[in-house]
């Protein structure tokens, strides 16, 4: 059963220096419960695509449908995780997760407590964002989105600013969440290992104008080990795609 359907999506930005063709002729169907990662060089329109799916940006041509309904604006059934955690600094961890819901509501209270456990933040309920590390703050942001039971979670390079240790920890946390909830995930990254570690399908994008170059199905069983032979094979498969387009920029940024 397909959750998201994108047809003939085209997007241009009008700027002072003329027209930027950010996305061209995007066709994409994503099934319910799938884990999709999107990888591509910087400026290829990954964030733009995610914002269009989220309904944050609705000025485009073509159609974007979730559950057969056209996306016309942002809503809580499309959770969005930005590169920065974007927590409310004046709220504690638990209040940040609840946000516009009241913690006095027993149902909200219970769900918030469950989520704090899920993202492994027991003991930090009453902490303020300034007391959290980057990874912890990002987990609060994920819990905040999950509280609203989204149909799909859109993550825009959520671990990009974290150090390598923290990042691989966060990948495991996110993987556990997905195993438990089966929330559909669309995850943008520029880290090839991260993309292969998590995804059912890796979508490789290409720049100027942004297009989908190739979709690679990763059909090795979870949980995956980055040192495995099959993991390395997929890695080469993805790298080959980038060689074809001479996009060394991405490889550089991934630190390979």
């Amino acid at each position: 059963m397909s959750l998201l359907e994108i047809h003939d999506l085209d997007k241009s930005f009008h700027t002072n220096n003329g027209l930027t063709h950010a996305l061209k002729n995007i066709q994409l169907t994503i099934k319910n419960g799938e884990f999709i990662t999107i990888i591509g060089p910087s400026g290829c329109g990954k964030s733009t695509l995610l914002k269009i799916i989220a309904g944050i940006d609705i000025e485009h041509s073509g159609s974007v449908k979730i559950d057969q309904k056209e996306v016309i604006g942002p809503s809580i059934d499309k959770g969005f995780i930005f590169q920065e955690p974007r927590l409310f600094p004046w709220f504690t961890v638990e209040k940040n997760i609840a946000a516009n819901f009241s913690l006095n509501d027993i149902k909200v209270r219970k769900k918030v407590d469950e989520l704090i456990k899920l993202v492994r933040l027991e003991g930090f309920k009453k902490a303020y964002p300034k007391e959290l590390s980057g990874g912890m703050a990002q987990r609060v942001a994920i819990a905040r989105a999950l509280l609203r039971n989204p149909k799909v979670l859109l993550l825009d390079e959520p671990f990009g600013a974290l150090d390598a240790f923290t990042r691989s920890h966060m990948q495991e946390v996110l993987f556990d969440i997905w195993q438990e909830n089966r929330t559909t995930m669309i995850f943008v990254t520029h880290d090839i290992d991260e993309a292969i570690f998590l995804a059912n399908r890796v979508i490789i994008m290409n720049a100027r104008p942004g297009t989908v170059q190739k979709v690679i199905r990763i059909d090795s069983p979870y949980p995956r080990k980055k040192s495995n032979k099959s993991f390395q094979d997929f890695r080469h498969l993805v790298l080959n795609e980038f060689d074809k387009t001479d996009e060394l920029e991405l490889v550089d940024r991934a630190g390979i």
């Binding site: 989220a54 809503s75 974007r86 409310f88 004046w90 946000a99 516009n100």
Partner: peptide, 24 residues
């Protein structure tokens, strides 16, 4: 950026004022 979050979380105008604008 926090306004964008408030939009994604579907804050009502009232919540936007009490949870975002006034504390900030």
């Amino acid at each position: 950026k926090l306004f964008e979050v408030a939009k994604v979380l579907e804050f009502s105008r009232w919540k936007q004022i009490t949870n975002l604008i006034l504390p900030s």
